[in-house]
Design a protein around this nucleic acid. Structure first.
Lengths: 123, 123, 123, 123
DNA sequence: GTGGTCTAGACCACA
DNA sequence: GTGGTCTAGACCACG
């Protein structure tokens, strides 16, 4: 049972994001079966309806396919997964740059700021 | 009237973020008076309650001070503003690094990814 | 209270279809406010959650926009409504033609079959 | 193995519809033997239970008859097959007219719309 | 007041 | 067993 959700985002989105990360990182392969709605609900310590919603959302995005009576599977369309990864990456970078720009940082400052942060983190 | 809010974040937060950016960038100076709630509401095309909430939130963070009968002012405590800028910057970098890590990127990939993005943007 | 739903399709889809028809037929105009979730739930004799789902689905399709704390409105993007109407019409005709073809009917037979049906209906 | 089922309809219905079309079009004649459940399952790449259900459904509608130990056969009652065809046709036309009416089209517009669609298709 | 999320528990169709 | 729908009732953030 893992119940560490931040209150800001909906739980069903947080779980979807988490699963998407796993898929994008290759921890779950194309065609692989996801835990059943009920099982995942127990694992995550939430109501099955919430997982249902997670899976629906992911299906809507094409990340996952459901086969009736069989379960939910990572899409076998590798192109979708590739696109997903690059889209996610671009979104993250884009919002980073946007936010830094709003704060008045130049492009150089963004890079040095990031490098400093990473150096500090390594210690 | 400017009504271009993205649906994801609460409007009162979006406005607070926008004002904070202006202050941090130095477009609004310490001690400067902000528009009245009513005026700001008209400018933004938004319900005065929403602006009220924006100002309350910013006061809670120590960014602005309200003086009864006079209005709302950017804090004159320069230290707070400095801290604000560095905190905002750290938050942005932190969430960037976290998100990229979730996608499976290494520290080097984060930097090169950012550099590529910026290079592409310049063209 | 109106509870005449066919069992085959999900209720939330049937309601969405019904609302879409009304919008497409011009009975609801662009920008017009839909009944609140709770009110619509009472009108339709279903649970508010079901209407919630109806509205979400319609928003996903771009037919409707929700403004926080204000309600749900028919989109003001007239182009979307035009496209919707033509898409719905094409879909209907397409599946009609496909089904008739599967039964072995020629194009002429489809038209005469339809004309006969309509003539019979008028009496 | 043919696994191209649209997700909306149950698979066993899709197969039943497909078989019914073949029978109505005369590709399968009265009294002809259908593939065994097991064989059909392999052909369709589907669970035998699903085919079983298809055949049951078709027997319920009087389209096929199962003879113990021999298999499943298209009914030899030609009247049933005639009725089936006309019933299927009427159903298709009926739902077409109903749907078009819901969209606000007049009878004339239904016919011209259909004619236009067919003309476009021919090119 | 509005829409959005979540839980609990139930029932159904499908494979 | 699987996913999908629905109800009942609750709580929350937003405007």
């Amino acid at each position: 049972m893992a119940k560490d959700f931040q209150s800001s985002k909906p739980i069903y989105i947080q779980i979807a994001d988490h699963l998407s990360s796993q898929i994008v990182r290759g921890e779950m392969r194309a065609g692989e079966k996801l835990p059943s709605v009920r099982e995942m609900a127990i694992q995550s310590g939430v109501n099955p309806n919430t997982i249902q919603r997670t899976y629906s959302e992911m299906e809507r995005m094409g990340i996952v396919e459901t086969r009736r009576g069989q379960g939910t599977f990572v899409t076998e369309n590798e192109q979708v997964l590739k696109d997903l990864k690059s889209r996610l990456q671009t979104d993250i970078i884009h919002s980073f740059v946007q936010n830094m720009k709003d704060l008045g940082y130049s492009q150089e400052e963004m890079i040095t700021g990031l490098e400093q942060y990473l150096r500090r983190e390594q210690e």
